[in-house]
C-alpha cells in the first residue's frame, strides 16, 4: 500500500517543484482530464475492494478516460456546445457513485471482520 501513496506524494511534489504553466485556453481540458483521472482512480479502488481489479483495465481506463474527456471538451468547443459540462456531470455522478460503493464495501468488510471475531470468540 505504501508504493501508490508514495507515487501520489511524488506526483504532488513534482507538481509543486515544476511550475508548468497551462495556457488559458487549455485549462478547461486539463480540468476535465483530472476529473476523469480521479474517477478512474476511485473506480480502481472500488474494483480492488470488490476483488475484481484488473491492472490493464485500470491503466487503459485511466489514460483513455483522461484523453477522451479532454477530446470531448475540445469537440464541444469546436461545435460551440458545452459538452464538457456533460462530461463534468457524468464524471461527478460516477465519482459520487464510486465513493458510495467504496463506502459500502468498506462497511461490509468492517461488519464481516466484526462477525468473524465474534464467531471466533464463540
Amino acid at each position: 500500500m505504501w508504493l501508490p501513496v508514495t507515487g501520489l506524494i511524488l506526483g504532488i511534489i513534482l507538481g509543486f517543484l515544476f511550475s508548468v504553466e497551462i495556457p488559458l485556453g487549455v485549462v478547461k481540458y486539463t480540468a476535465i482530464a483530472i476529473l476523469a483521472a480521479v474517477d478512474t482512480i476511485l473506480g480502481g479502488l472500488r474494483a480492488q475492494l470488490e476483488e475484481r481489479f484488473d491492472l490493464s483495465i485500470f491503466l487503459t481506463g485511466f489514460f483513455a478516460n483522461t484523453l477522451f474527456a479532454a477530446l470531448l471538451t475540445a469537440i464541444g468547443d469546436l461545435l460551440g456546445v458545452d459538452i464538457y459540462l456533460g462530461a463534468v456531470i457524468a464524471f461527478s455522478i460516477r465519482i459520487f457513485s464510486n465513493v458510495g460503493f467504496i463506502r459500502r464495501d468498506l462497511l461490509e468488510r468492517y461488519w464481516q471482520g466484526l462477525r468473524a471475531t465474534v464467531t471466533s470468540k464463540q
Partner: peptide, 26 residues
C-alpha cells in the same frame, strides 16, 4: 500492480497540483 498504481497516482497528483496552481494563478 502497486507500481502501476503509483505511476497513475503520481500522474494524477501531478496533473491536479498543476491544475490547482494554474487556477489559483488565474
Amino acid at each position: 500492480l502497486q507500481a502501476a498504481l503509483a505511476v497513475v497516482l503520481a500522474v494524477a497528483g501531478f496533473l491536479a497540483v498543476t491544475q490547482i496552481r494554474n487556477e489559483l494563478l488565474i
